Amino acid sequence: MTTASTATAPLVNNPLMHYGPRMLQRSAAGAEEIEYRRISLCPLTTHIGAEVTGVDLSSPVDDELARELRAALLEWKVLFFRGQEAMTPSAHRALVDVWGAPEANPFFPQGDSVEVSRLAKDEITFGHENIWHSDHSFMAAPALGAVLRAVEVPPAGGDTMWTDMYAVYDNLPEGLKERIEGSSAVHDWEPSWGTTMTPAQIIALRQRLPIVEHPVVVRHPRTGRKLLYVNEPFTIRIAGLPEDESRALLCELVLQARIPEYQVRFRWQPGSVAIWDNIATQHYAINDYFPQRRVMERISIAGVPLS
């Protein structure tokens, strides 16, 4: 006979298991309310992701519009734009300047300029970005953000998802927050990107991209708000812990990004543009369209060392 206590006990010790509402704050407590005059925002969730209207990204961005776009990105973490077919590669490049300098991904093929990564997926080249990750976390100064433009999309599928790493941190149990406060994690590109490279290529690239450490709990460089900064493909261990303990803790932490309440999902159309905060979010490119064709162009925004 099954007792009441065993009938209600969880089957596994699942770090994702949670019943009821979660704390989902769009901005830090006490943050100043922002009034937008040049743009209109349509939120896709209560805390992450907003579609922006009233902006033509093919035209130059003046100082007032730039200030509102920067404020909106800090507030919503991901901004989406529709109907931007007239946006040219030079306008794409100029838009990045609203946030900072461009940065090339060392593993992506480059497009018309050294900063533009052209990501073409089809029946021959299929995507590997279907894992929750933060771009360039394996670098000493990870990318601050990115601007992604849809050139060609499949008739169905090929969505991208983002997850709010502020919300992930906010909802960690207090005991776990205390445990990871002040800890560092080791980030490395070799276990993922290195699988497609020869030993000689790895050795040559290692000179430019050594293994790095970042705090497990990061304060965002522009908001000062705390977030969890570990991800599945690039974070390989928690510094200073025995291997078994590091693996168990890291597994519990990286799985938090998979919780649906923290996420927003975007359906691409030709001419759609997404701009995201790469420190405050992780993203996942859903690979459900193979062997259909999907072509995107991306420019990353250079970042700073994290603390």
Rank of each mutant, 00 (worst) to 15 (best):
A4E: 10
A7Q: 02
A7D: 04
T8Y: 03
A9W: 02
N14I: 07
M17C: 00
G30L: 07
G30F: 03
A31D: 14
E32I: 02
E33N: 08
R37G: 06
R38K: 12
T45I: 13
E51K: 15
S59M: 13
P60R: 04
D63L: 03
E64W: 00
E64L: 11
L65G: 03
E68R: 02
L69I: 11
A72Y: 05
V78E: 12
V78P: 05
G83P: 14
T88W: 05
P89A: 05
A91I: 12
R93W: 10
R93N: 13
L95Y: 08
W99P: 04
E103W: 05
R118M: 02
R118W: 04
I124G: 01
T125N: 12
H128F: 13
N130H: 15
I131T: 15
S134W: 14
L144S: 13
V147N: 11
L148H: 12
V153W: 10
P155K: 13
G157H: 08
Y166D: 05
Y166R: 03
N171A: 14
L172I: 04
L172G: 11
G175R: 04
I180K: 05
G182C: 10
G182Q: 05
G182M: 06
S184E: 13
A185T: 12
E190C: 05
G194H: 09
G194I: 12
G194E: 12
T195Q: 15
T195M: 09
M197E: 07
T198I: 07
A204G: 05
R206D: 00
Q207S: 01
R208A: 12
R208P: 01
H214T: 00
P215M: 10
V216T: 08
V218K: 01
R219C: 02
R219K: 12
H220E: 10
K226N: 08
Y229P: 07
N231P: 05
N231C: 15
E232P: 00
P233N: 03
T235K: 03
I236S: 04
I236D: 01
R237W: 00
D244E: 15
R247G: 02
V254N: 03
L255I: 06
E261S: 13
Q263H: 04
R265S: 13
F266N: 01
Q269L: 15
Q269C: 14
P270S: 09
G271C: 11
S272A: 13
V273N: 10
A274K: 03
A274W: 01
I275Q: 11
W276C: 06
N278S: 11
T281L: 09
Y284P: 02
Y284N: 14
F290H: 04
P291W: 11
R293E: 12
R293P: 01
R293Y: 01
A302I: 02
A302P: 05
G303T: 11
L306S: 14
